[in-house]
Amino acid sequence: MRIGVVTFPGSLDDTDAARAVRYAGAEPVRLWHADRDLRRVDAVILPGGFSYGDYLRCGAIARFSPVMAELIPAARAGLPVLGICNGFQILCEAHLLPGALTRNAGLRFITRDVRLTVGNATTPWTGGYHAGQQLLVPLKSGEGAYAADQATLDELEAAGRVVVRYAGEAPNGAARGIAGICSDDGNVVGLMPHPEHAIDPLTGPSADGLGFFTSVVRAFAGAAAATEAEAGALR
């Protein structure tokens, strides 16, 4: 499986994201923000960082980059996309996910390990977890407070689209403790905490984050097997 990792000017966590992809047994494919080319990847990760210096609003300029012109229609057509931190902000700015990320309630940039509770274990990125599972992963963001209007929040909760929630009080003032959400059909997932920094106890607080990457590999293998079986049945 080929998983693209986009590098924008100001991306920081693209190398860790690529490492997580390798740990999960897939091939990381580096994608450049200025290329109108997804290089035939099977999934894409938008990594953390400060794309375009966070000018205007976090993710607001990245949304209009050439690679996003390719990614947006592909995501709408079902390509699995994971946005981490700044990647989540970009997905919201691109309207692939509802809502927005706003400045932390306490104004401080927060860098600490946080406990998350998995709310939706049916997306391609979370299929390897089970609902209610607790994960310990780092959070490091200054504008990580998820915000949306009440109707959108109600809809997200009713449809099970809250993928991960902060266990206990949200450290950043996120609405309803939301740490990550998914699109209608689940293929696009965005979250503020960083699973790619928690794939090995040697370099992170746990290996709890690896499941995001192994899940998508397994989902892809399952989809490939299903397509093969379908083709076999037709033959």
Binding site: R103, N104, A105, G106, A147
Partner: peptide, 13 residues
Amino acid sequence: MLKPEIHDPQGEA
């Protein structure tokens, strides 16, 4: 401007 219902921690600071 931020919408009135959106928390503005910068303004508070």
